[in-house]
């Protein structure tokens, strides 16, 4: 099976309006629309993690609205300090496996799982390496190119993508480092899409040198431990090792510190917070990380991301002003 990421997209909402109110986030709106209008036809199943309030409801909307694509819910533990969270999450993974086996008629085996974990860990390392290498070649790896490499990972078989990315990195390394005159920024948030939005960064002399986007580097910064038990247990431990994500409960509001560290490591001049419209988990984090960044001397701009809205003039003006300020 090949897992694909469902991150919505540009869509004209028609059918989804019968399931979600206008204040559900654009990703869920578009996913629902694509599910209902047949765009996602061909998927064997959809796995929905209930990590925010809208996603809780999406499990039920999908279940009744798109009966042709079976829905498999997974309820991740949020009290990760509790040792019992590991066994609980293993049982959730086992439920997912049971449904997948029913849908596909195939069984998972431990050797294949361990091999896959290794591929995913290698892929994580490759993506981190790509992110670093890209910073010496910002003439080639524009914000759009960087995003394309990141997002493409959701649509390749992981081993295939793991083979492609090192090629990109090696080719970049054969070229002389480019001294980029542009200002360097870190992106934070859920996603920074579509390409039109990323083009505005380039138009205004901004290059992306790192990110804390849920769709991009948050996917790759935590490896699955090599030891600790069987494959499922190690995957559960990986969930408990994740950090700095708005959708996972964590005390101390650590994202400001994390972003400041990203700025320091990547010599960034500031941060652009890509606040997904109607994303309440991100909205609770934003005042704190903005304040922490400012206290750390890093300028910060928040723009609202809504890929259902085609108008970017207001964002263009704000990014232009931010760039000038940097």
């Amino acid at each position: 099976m090949i897992p694909m990421g469902l991150w919505g997209g540009q869509a004209e909402l028609k059918l989804a309006k019968s399931y979600l109110p206008a204040f559900a986030c654009p990703i869920m709106q578009a996913d629902m629309e694509f599910g209902l209008n047949g765009t996602y036809e061909g998927l064997s199943a959809v796995i929905i993690p209930t990590i925010c309030d809208t996603l809780r409801c999406m499990t039920q909307n999908w279940r009744f609205g798109v009966p042709t694509i079976p829905m498999i819910p997974i309820v991740y533990p949020q009290n990760r300090k509790s040792p019992a969270s590991v066994d609980y999450l293993i049982s959730e993974y086992e439920t997912v496996l049971t449904v997948l086996s029913t849908v596909t008629g195939k069984m998972m085996n431990e050797a294949a799982l361990c091999e896959t974990i290794e591929i995913y860990n290698t892929h994580n390392a490759m993506m981190r390496e790509f992110s670093r290498a890209a910073n010496d070649h910002l003439d080639i790896i524009t914000p759009v190119e960087r995003h394309t490499v990141m997002k493409s990972a959701f649509f390749y078989e992981k081993s295939e993508h793991t083979a492609i990315v090192p090629n990109i990195v090696e080719n970049l390394k054969t070229l002389p480092a480019y001294c980029c005159p542009d200002k360097r920024v870190i992106l934070s948030g859920i996603t920074c899409e579509p390409d039109e939005l990323l083009e505005i960064l380039r138009e205004n002399g901004l290059c992306v040198v790192g990110d804390d986007l849920a769709q991009e580097m948050r996917q790759y910064r935590t490896d699955t431990p090599e030891k600790g038990g069987g494959g499922l247990r190690r995957l559960a431990l990986q969930w408990n090792n994740r950090y700095g994500c708005s959708l996972i409960h964590e005390l101390g509001k650590p994202r400001g510190k994390l972003l400041a560290e990203l700025c320091r490591e990547n010599e960034a001049d500031g941060v652009i917070c890509c606040l997904m419209k109607f994303c309440d988990p991100e909205e609770y984090d934003q005042p704190y990380y903005e304040a922490d960044l400012r206290a750390g001397g890093y300028p910060c701009l928040t723009v609202e991301v809504d890929h259902l809205n085609a108008g970017y003039e207001q964002i263009r003006t704000r990014i232009q002003t931010f760039s000038e300020m940097l």
Partner: peptide, 11 residues
């Protein structure tokens, strides 16, 4: 105020 109440209410 309450997405968890509203987002499956229509169904």
């Amino acid at each position: 105020s309450c997405k968890v109440m509203d987002c499956q209410m229509m169904e």
